[in-house]
């Protein structure tokens, strides 16, 4: 599967652009799509979490391709370091069956499949229609973290504070919801 996409990408790639980037993108994208589909289809919850790690790591790799190194590092630390661990805790605490003894897919999965296919068709059509052959700048440089932090702490200071308050309230809310009483 990976090879077909790779070949596809290589054929479409502009000769000026570094082929390596496209190859990397293709491989990572293939892994991500495969893993994402496994996340929503596998009948083992722990496997789902593992595949989720693959998707998240792939996204981080894509961020590096796009020059967003700080976001990529944050992605790895927060998502893979914290959120997935949280998921594993959730799985253990709810003692969900590890094996596929239980049904994990609802009866109306067909509606879901239909929905996502329709949505994907609409999205892809619009994207191809709207952005066509738009190219990313060829000389993508990694973003300076200093620039990023300046933006966060000046232009986006208020949203940043709001996010802090949101995290705090989520913290308290999670405790309140989950505690035994």
């Amino acid at each position: 599967m990976g090879f077909t996409i790779l070949a596809e990408v290589a054929r479409n790639a502009d000769a000026d652009v570094l082929v390596a980037q496209n190859v990397a993108f293709g491989i990572i994208a293939a892994i991500m799509i495969f893993s994402a589909i496994r996340v929503v289809t596998t009948s083992n919850v722990v496997h789902a979490a593992a595949f989720l790690v693959m998707v998240l790591a792939g996204a981080a790799a894509q961020f590096i391709l796009l020059g967003a190194e700080f976001v990529a590092v944050t992605q790895v630390m927060v998502y893979i370091g914290a959120i997935v661990v949280l998921f594993l805790f959730g799985i253990m605490l709810t003692r969900a069956p590890m094996q596929g003894t239980e049904k994990f897919t609802r009866d109306n999965w067909k509606v879901g499949a239909l929905t996502s296919v329709v949505m994907l068709a609409v999205l892809v059509f619009t994207l191809v229609d709207g952005f066509g052959e738009d190219k990313l700048p060829a000389d993508l440089m990694p973003t300076d973290t200093r620039v990023l932090s300046d933006a966060i702490f000046s232009t986006y200071l208020v949203p940043f504070e709001v996010i802090s308050v949101l995290l705090l309230s989520a913290l308290i809310g999670a405790i309140v919801i989950a505690r035994k009483d």
Partner: peptide, 10 residues
């Protein structure tokens, strides 16, 4: 909800 939104978008 999602199906409706997708169809509307279409």
């Amino acid at each position: 909800l999602f199906l409706g939104a997708a169809i509307l978008a279409a």
